[in-house]
């Protein structure tokens, strides 16, 4: 037998799943710490590639100067400066990522509250159905 209330709850839950498949539900697969660290690792990889590209662009821009005017010692000093700059940028972006991913996890948990109550309703309706069947028997 199809119960209207059960179908309504299931539909609402399915709509939420469809909408939040890559949002709150994806976040919920992780523990808080794991999610934040995963996000920070992704950020570190992305910022490393972006920084490498920016350095590459800078090197092409100053190619002539680097090839002709700079000594080996100068190049080492530049490399050192570059590493320090990379570390500073990385730390800055990691701190921002930490804050952003913490807030995102919190928001996802908040969104999931309603979904969980719908699931509880469904579980209860299943229990009621089962007990009704037992009584019939």
């Amino acid at each position: 037998m199809i119960r209207a209330n059960k179908v309504k709850t299931m539909t609402r839950a399915a709509m939420f799943e469809k909408k939040e498949a890559r949002g709150a539900l994806a976040v919920n697969r992780f523990f808080r710490g794991d999610y934040v660290i995963y996000g920070m690792i992704k950020s570190a990889i992305s910022i490393t590639i972006a920084f490498a590209l920016a350095v590459g662009m800078w090197v092409i821009y100053h190619a002539e100067e680097l090839m002709t005017e700079k000594s080996v010692a100068d190049l080492f000093a530049l490399g050192k400066q570059c590493v320090f700059m990379y570390a500073a940028v990385l730390i800055l972006f990691l701190l921002i990522s930490l804050a952003v991913y913490c807030v995102r996890y919190q928001k996802a948990q908040h969104k999931l509250k309603g979904y969980r109550s719908q699931l509880r309703k469904l579980a209860k309706s299943y229990q009621d159905e089962a007990s009704a069947k037992e009584k019939m028997l």
Partner: peptide
């Protein structure tokens, strides 16, 4: 560079 920076957040 924009794509990778965008990908962070």
């Amino acid at each position: 560079i924009m794509f990778f920076t965008y990908f962070i957040f």
